[in-house]
């Protein structure tokens, strides 16, 4: 079996790959968890698990969806372990406002869009983040979520539609 991350050279290559992917891993975890601390924990745990099983990754090109799978599992595991209390959505979004506003690029428009994304139901938010941020194909998203491609396309369409509606962006077209 091809094992590009076996041995000493493999360790170095894998560490470099994780360094490069870490920003997107954190961002994906953040949009999944909607909490920066949880996202950091999820990414750290995911990296540890990925490191331990790195030799099972036969194709370096598949590293990104492989890591996304691990993050999703870690998030589910952490969520189950902590049994988070239900937080009213408005409180959750409000809680994130200060940290979202500290970003260099957080102009009013970006901040409003971040609030709208945070408020999206996970069914719509997760595939959208996988597509736009992580760059997964609809086929890869379907595999991650256990859905058909048609269902993924439908959710992606609705996610964008909901964001436009939340921001008051005109929906130009009869399909909207």
């Amino acid at each position: 079996m091809n094992a590009p991350f076996a041995g000493k050279d493999g360790e170095s290559a894998f560490a470099s790959l994780c360094d490069a992917l870490r920003p997107d891993m954190f961002r994906f975890a953040f949009w999944l968890a909607r909490d920066r601390n949880v996202a950091e924990d999820v990414v750290q745990e995911a990296l540890l698990r990925a490191w331990r099983s790195r030799e099972s990754l036969a194709d370096a090109a598949a590293a990104k969806p492989w890591l996304i799978t691990i993050i999703r599992r870690e998030h589910a595991r952490l969520f189950e372990r902590k049994r988070h209390e239900t937080v009213p959505l408005d409180d959750l979004v409000a809680d994130h406002s200060p940290e979202l506003a500290t970003a260099d690029d957080a102009d009013r428009e970006t901040l409003d869009l971040r609030r709208a994304i945070l408020a999206l139901d996970a069914d719509y938010r997760e595939p959208l983040v996988m597509q736009v941020l992580v760059g997964l194909s609809t086929q890869e998203i379907a595999e991650q979520l256990g859905l058909t491609q048609a269902a993924v396309l439908s959710r992606l369409f609705r996610a964008r539609h909901k964001l436009r509606a939340a921001l008051g962006v005109p929906a130009d077209g009869e399909a909207d």
Binding site: A103, T110, L113
Partner: peptide, 13 residues
């Protein structure tokens, strides 16, 4: 609009 979404998703790491 997708560009705007992508920019919004790039939260500080």
């Amino acid at each position: 609009f997708d560009e705007r979404i992508r920019a919004a998703l790039l939260v500080p790491v």
